[in-house]
Computed example of a mutant assay.
Amino acid sequence: MTTFDYGPIEFYAIAFDGDRPGPAVLQAIDDLVATGTVNLLDLVFARRSPEGEIEMLELSDTVDDGAPALDLAGLAGHDDVQYMADALEPGTSAAILVIEQLWAKSFAAALYDAGGAVIAREGIPAPVVNAFLSEYAD
């Protein structure tokens, strides 16, 4: 059976009001890493000032001792981050994460060995799922 060094990865751009997400967001990411659910490959903060200027800060550039550990700092390229940050409104910020889905690593290898390939993937945000289910629950 094929063994991959890494499983599937995903980019997330998560917008926040203000210039940075709170410490609870970093703690939630750290918890996911600690439980082996994901591997944090890169984390970049972007913010757009009220005047419209974009500033980016790599997690690896910070000196915060409470920050999660990165496996591959710099995986999110400057152009990728800039593209995602362009959508920010003045006075808002975003956390741009690159995560490896650890749960899917062996599944990806099994698909590869069977000649299979994921040809489409669509995510549905949790607020949408919960709103739908609560509306149609018995």
Score class of each variant (00 low, 15 high):
residue 97 L to N: 00
residue 116 G to N: 11
residue 15 A to R: 07
residue 53 E to W: 08
residue 50 P to Y: 05
residue 30 D to N: 12
residue 21 P to Y: 05
residue 82 Q to M: 14
residue 49 S to Q: 09
residue 83 Y to S: 10
residue 50 P to E: 15
residue 31 D to P: 01
residue 50 P to A: 13
residue 67 A to D: 10
residue 58 E to S: 14
residue 83 Y to L: 10
residue 64 D to S: 03
residue 118 V to L: 13
residue 60 S to K: 09
residue 4 F to E: 06
residue 59 L to G: 00
residue 26 L to A: 11
residue 67 A to S: 12
residue 75 L to N: 07
residue 31 D to G: 08
residue 10 E to P: 00
residue 108 A to H: 08
residue 28 A to C: 04
residue 119 I to R: 14
residue 77 G to Q: 13
residue 90 P to C: 10
residue 75 L to E: 07
residue 42 D to N: 04
residue 22 G to I: 03
residue 54 I to H: 06
residue 65 D to W: 01
residue 99 I to F: 09
residue 110 A to S: 13
residue 39 N to Q: 14
residue 115 G to W: 08
residue 98 V to G: 07
residue 35 T to W: 04
residue 32 L to E: 09
residue 27 Q to C: 02
residue 104 A to P: 01
residue 36 G to R: 03
residue 61 D to E: 15
residue 14 I to P: 00
residue 49 S to I: 06
residue 96 I to M: 10
residue 56 M to L: 15
residue 113 D to P: 10
residue 123 G to T: 12
residue 96 I to T: 02
residue 81 V to R: 00
residue 113 D to W: 07
residue 17 D to Q: 09
residue 59 L to R: 06
residue 49 S to L: 03
residue 84 M to Y: 09
residue 105 K to P: 00
residue 121 R to V: 08
residue 73 A to Q: 11
residue 103 W to Y: 13
residue 77 G to Y: 05
residue 11 F to Y: 14
residue 8 P to D: 11
residue 83 Y to I: 03
residue 79 D to L: 09
residue 66 G to M: 04
residue 53 E to D: 13
residue 87 A to M: 10
residue 83 Y to K: 08
residue 56 M to P: 00
residue 104 A to N: 07
residue 121 R to A: 14
residue 45 F to G: 06
residue 116 G to P: 05
residue 61 D to S: 15
residue 112 Y to N: 11
residue 60 S to I: 13
residue 93 S to W: 02
residue 57 L to T: 13
residue 27 Q to F: 07
residue 72 L to Y: 10
residue 108 A to R: 07
residue 34 A to F: 05
residue 34 A to M: 07
residue 22 G to Y: 03
residue 100 E to D: 10
residue 18 G to A: 04
residue 109 A to H: 09
residue 50 P to F: 09
residue 64 D to H: 06
residue 38 V to E: 04
residue 37 T to N: 08
residue 81 V to F: 01
residue 19 D to M: 07
residue 58 E to A: 15
residue 35 T to Y: 03
residue 69 A to W: 02
residue 85 A to Q: 00
residue 109 A to L: 05
residue 80 D to C: 02
residue 83 Y to M: 14
residue 39 N to D: 12
residue 98 V to Q: 04
residue 38 V to L: 15
residue 85 A to N: 04
residue 92 T to C: 13
residue 107 F to D: 07
residue 20 R to C: 08
residue 14 I to K: 08
